[in-house]
Design a protein around this nucleic acid. Structure first.
Lengths: 346, 346
DNA sequence: ACCCCTCATGGAAGCGATTTCATATTGTAA
DNA sequence: TTACAATATGAAATCGCTTCCATGAGGGGT
């Protein structure tokens, strides 16, 4: 660029202080002077440097968003919600794709610190990572608020926006039970993530309420990805007494299940029942009626950003306890939870 | 934070200049001094302010990415490629979701200017927008390189990474023709976008090569979204002589077509043929074999970022002509291009 | 022993804003 | 007309770095 506030000042025959006042809408500027300055700004095509301003005021309008996998539509939705709120309040977003790599996550947090970001929205890679935890704590201590999204971190000392994973999962499994299912499998999410754990807890809780014993052979460890779910399905379906229903703990997992079923001629909602966590819009376009536990994902991002903004605005006020928001889930039944009982009862 | 280079200097009993040299790896520092400084840095937990550095050097490591719809998986893939390359070279990404709104686009470009971004990756909202065009030109003139991705802007004066839309489209339609189709419909993309136009040109070219007259009743204007495509399909299929094949010009459009077909009992690859532009991974999980014109989307983002980096590094060198990269497309045939001829021939 | 060159380091001037404090100007009441 | 308050403006310090220039300390060649 090359053109700065002094050039404008000179052109308008005023001091830089006055130009600054005009830019920032200070009331103590004569209309006439203001007009003169504005005109110089236009004439020279001047845009104030946010860098210089930030350095001077010690205060940026930039926040960071750390996300484990930007390709996952679920996270894209969150980002979409975030960016809506950010735009509304004039914040800019640094995006950091941690690619499920804790090392990268650390590096990005360093970058965030260097950039003196005003706040951080984080979907941590690993709920138990000590380094991440320490780094985030130190951000908070330095007055840079942190809001976790969807996944938590060790203890409850961070603000966060999560969903009712436990309840949603319990509801789904209860639905299976009401349908008459007794051999209900679950394909779990990673153990080091809140959603994985809570959904697993919900599963156990539902069984326990119905006094159905937990049978570990119906519990498969997944990783929120398609491949592993497919393999898990294969194992389940080859059992002597295969499950009659499967609860899949995220969107990609559901896809793996569906693929297996289709490839092996199992009709979903007849031969095998399926409920997934998180809706998959596409499925409806292709005529697959999958029952799911859904939540408003974009809204999660929006709320997280709102919460962050609230924290940023009242920074310095003494730490009110971490506030956690839980998004409600909704069980959407489309038929895949049904089954032809005859098949199941051996 | 509060702790700066002077604190470190004082702690290590050297000058700020020396600390700066250590940080930036200048060779003119004694090992012993260097060690002392490093230790102070550790001890105080010092992170240099990128803001101050940027202001001082007039040079940030931040680039901007303007994208029309972050929820669209196609754009997520591009972002993914970008962020991979950015990470590799230590660049940070500001993301701006323009939400298909030219007004927002302008505002974001202002913000980008204020932040003194080093370079810009842009998927313009509207290929013909005058304001966007002028703003981007002025960035380039000010030494801030701009690389367009997927969509272009009026003339060829910008760097850009596109794909072989024309060729890909022509190939798809030619494939239909070889299959024996003669009534081939197209659901077009928006007229103000390069992909829309080029794919439309490819369609016409293929027909013309085969000396098939262009029949406008088989040409439907779409908008790259599902709903409109669905409606277009409805119109096409209700015609007296409906098309036997449909070429759909992007991923969402294909979904609209598929949904229509499924809902109306049309078997794809038998009753109606379909080829889409851009692959949809999910479809295979659910057993729908859609033939598509595909390209490496993530790679597009990667290449765009690489090109941008090249430009940024040799900024100031006299303007070599704009360089345009065209990603090859690949026709992937999975069967949906077939048909039961008997149905088609009236 | 002298001179010159190289290398390590410090002093201080920017970079481009904001902001405090001081000053000049204007208005108004006595 | 004087005096004091309110208002408009400028000078200069500051934010935290980088970097140019100056200076001092060694080292080698003659």
């Amino acid at each position: 660029m090359g053109i700065n506030i002094y050039d404008v000042a000179q052109n308008a025959k005023v001091s830089s202080a006055t130009v600054s006042r005009v830019i920032n809408g200070s009331p103590h500027v004569r209309e006439e002077t203001k007009a003169k300055v504005m005109q110089s700004i236009k004439a020279l095509g001047y845009t104030p440097s946010a860098l210089a301003r930030n350095l001077s005021t010690g205060d940026t309008h930039n926040i960071g968003f750390l996300v484990p996998d930007i390709e996952n539509p679920f996270f894209s939705m969150i980002l979409s919600g975030i960016s809506k709120a950010a735009d509304e309040y004039g914040y800019n977003i640094f995006i950091f794709n941690t690619a499920d790599d804790a090392g990268k996550e650390c590096r990005f947090l360093e970058a965030a610190r260097a950039e003196r970001l005003r706040g951080l929205l984080v979907i941590p890679v690993d709920s138990r990572n000590e380094t991440t935890y320490k780094q985030l704590r130190s951000f908070v201590q330095d007055g840079v608020p942190v809001v976790l999204v969807d996944r938590d971190l060790r203890d409850g000392r961070f603000d966060g926006v999560y969903s009712e994973d436990f309840f949603g999962s319990m509801q789904a499994v209860s639905c299976f039970l009401e349908e008459g299912h007794r051999r209900i499998a679950i394909i779990n999410g990673p153990e080091n993530s809140r959603p994985g754990n809570e959904r697993w807890r919900g599963y156990k809780e539902a069984l326990s309420k119905w006094e159905i014993p937990l049978q570990m052979q119906y519990v498969k460890q997944g990783d929120f990805h398609q491949e592993r779910a497919y393999d898990a399905m294969a194992e389940l379906m080859c059992m002597e007494h295969p499950p009659t229903a499967v609860f899949s703990s995220n969107n990609l997992t559901s896809l793996g299940c569906i693929r297996y079923a289709l490839e092996h001629g199992l009709s979903i909602g007849e031969d095998i029942s399926l409920i997934g966590f998180d809706d998959i819009e596409l499925l409806q376009a292709v005529g697959i009626q999958l029952s799911v536990v859904d939540r408003d994902t974009s809204q999660m991002g929006w709320k997280a950003m709102k919460l962050l903004i609230r924290r940023m605005h009242k920074a310095g006020e003494d730490d009110t306890a971490a506030s956690e928001i839980y998004m409600p889930t909704k069980l959407i039944l489309r038929g895949s939870e049904k089954w032809r009982r005859s098949h199941g009862t051996v």
